Amino acid sequence: MSNLHGDINDDEIRIISSGKVKTEKKKSKLLPVILWVVVSMLLIVFLCIVFFSSIEIEDERLYEEVMEQPIISATSVENTNNVKSPAFTIKTDTIVSGIGLSFLTPNNATPVLEIGNEVLDDSSIVLIAQAADIRGDNGGIVGSFVVKGELVSKGEAKAGFCSIINGDVTVGVADATPMFEQALMSNGYFFRQYPLVVGGQIVENKPKGKSIRKALVELNGKISVVVSRERLTFHDFSQVLTDVGVSNAIYLVGGDAYVRCVDAGGSSFTFGREWDKEIDNVNFIVWR
């Protein structure tokens, strides 16, 4: 017969609260561990906040110190120390379409025009070439010629021109060009010569004979003096200049006219010969 009132018989055994006791013991053991983990995590978070806050403050301090220092550009440093890279000429000998050419390209040098053979004694020159032609009748310079803004000669017998304004050389072809007025107004330089190449195209000229040819050319954005290693007509010289990629070119005094350059190692190379020192209007384009 079942016991409805929860009583037990003599032959029955009841285990009282054994599961409850075990549960309470487990909970009492886990509680300190949980508290220790929570406190440790809070401590770690606090230390991280303090650490990264100190880094930000230090970075701000360093940034402020750097910004307080003056900023000096490379140009400013160079001007402050009065240091200038040495001037020299890059001499490149090449063969184009079977014709030998010498390209003389000034580097770190300033261009000007000068009159008179006295300039040949200047040791600071790294490239010099005769520029404008001289009249056979009166010894005057052919075409317009400007030196330091002063008009030395006037005329437009030749369409090719070279202007030097604020140290920048421009080679072009035009019967009338504003570069002439700019040279007069800015203490610049200007002279005229036969045109050889304009916009990469040949310009035909009347003289048909052969001679050692020289030119002032624009190639890949740089100005060079070019000397042929053999006698050529104007047409053949213009053709070989276009073959090598010259965009603009005007003639320089050819034949045995004087050209000299000095390379980076101090070696000097001379083409042609010096003219009679009694000729007053011998003129040169010069780089120092």
Rank of each mutant, 00 (worst) to 15 (best):
E274I: 00
G155L: 07
K214I: 04
F269N: 06
N107K: 11
T105P: 00
L42D: 03
V171S: 03
V146C: 05
S40Y: 07
W275L: 09
Y189T: 00
A129Y: 07
A109W: 04
V282A: 02
V227Q: 04
K84Y: 12
I285C: 01
P207V: 05
I285T: 00
I57A: 14
F284S: 02
L104K: 03
T233M: 08
I223C: 01
E12K: 15
N81M: 15
E68F: 14
L113K: 01
N9V: 12
S211D: 12
K222C: 08
H5F: 15
A74T: 13
I115H: 01
V45S: 09
P70G: 11
G100E: 14
S268G: 04
E150M: 07
A157D: 10
M185W: 07
A131C: 06
T177P: 00
K208V: 10
L42H: 03
G116D: 02
D256L: 06
S97C: 03
N166G: 11
N205E: 14
G139S: 10
Y194E: 12
K214F: 07
T242H: 05
L216V: 02
E58I: 08
E218T: 13
S186K: 07
V169N: 02
V197L: 10
A74I: 14
G172K: 08
R61V: 12
N81C: 14
V225K: 00
N283S: 07
V50N: 14
G209H: 08
E58M: 10
L252C: 02
R192Q: 08
V171A: 04
